[in-house]
């Protein structure tokens, strides 16, 4: 059953058009791998899916409901891993994780944290302060965060950065077991992650040149950075005459 869909998505970063007319869909148990060159909008798309940003055009739906209509419900069902690990240097690994467990309303906080730490093989670091962790250990701590509480959707932005080969295999196992429970995983990665039969979404296909997009705005009711006639010289002359 198709659960998570997006249609006609256009994304602007600053004043730069990242991608346009993008569509995706994911069913329960799916894995979607985002591919594309630097700047193709992999992170931007994941942030759109998380609801951190809003698309300039188009919408994203979860079971036919626009995620913009009920952001709290969407946030409750998703786990997001960004570029940064969000680890406080002065707090222990356990204390770092505790906040996220509490915010998700987990009842057995210590039990879940233990379980998550064991799954990432960092249980021995539970009482180590964040500042003593290596970058790989920090990444694993961040990954164990997404195991806390129940969720239906994982949005992982370059989850393998800083991970060694064994950790990558562990991550692949975690993704597999999450999918087996019906979870949807959407991720971007530069190295091969051993995920079985992921759907591949190539963002390079959805890049549209700015000019084309500006011209397309003719039909739209509202424009933003653009204008109907980028080359309209008459208007330029008028400006000159009035100054």
């Amino acid at each position: 059953m198709t659960v998570f869909t997006g249609s006609d998505l256009t994304c602007l970063r600053g004043e730069r058009l990242v991608f346009g007319n993008l569509a995706f869909s994911a069913s329960t148990g799916d894995a979607v791998m985002l591919r594309g060159r630097n700047g193709a909008g992999k992170s931007s798309l994941l942030r759109l899916m998380a609801g951190l940003t809003s698309p300039r055009r188009g919408n994203i739906r979860w079971q036919e409901h626009d995620i913009a209509d009920d952001r709290i419900a969407h946030r409750a069902r998703l786990q997001y891993l960004g570029h940064q690990d969000a680890i406080k240097p002065v707090l222990s690994v356990r204390d770092n994780l505790r906040l996220w467990a509490e915010l998700r309303g987990v009842s057995d906080i210590d039990g879940e944290i233990d379980q998550a730490l064991r799954a990432l093989d960092i249980h021995h670091l539970a009482h180590t302060a964040g500042r003593y962790l290596s970058s790989g250990q920090k990444r694993r701590t961040a990954l164990s965060r997404i195991l806390l509480g129940s969720s239906d959707l994982w949005l992982l932005d370059e989850p393998t950065v800083g991970l060694d080969r064994e950790s990558c295999a562990e991550l692949a196992r975690l993704i597999a077991s999450f999918r087996a429970k019906g979870g949807i995983v959407i991720y971007s990665t530069h190295i091969d992650l051993d995920v079985t039969s992921p759907t591949i979404l190539d963002l390079d296909q959805f890049a549209i040149p700015m000019m084309e997009w500006l011209a397309d705005q003719d039909d739209a009711d509202e424009t933003d950075t653009g204008d109907n006639h980028p080359f309209d010289i008459d208007q330029g002359k008028q400006t000159g005459a009035t100054i």
Binding site: E15, P209, M210, M211, L214, T225, D227, P230, T239, T242
Partner: peptide, 19 residues
């Protein structure tokens, strides 16, 4: 005048970005 200036500047930036 200032709004027109800003709109035109944006248009130039958009064209620059479009290559």
């Amino acid at each position: 005048l200032r709004v027109r200036l800003e709109l035109n500047q944006r248009r130039i930036r958009a064209l620059q970005l479009s290559g």
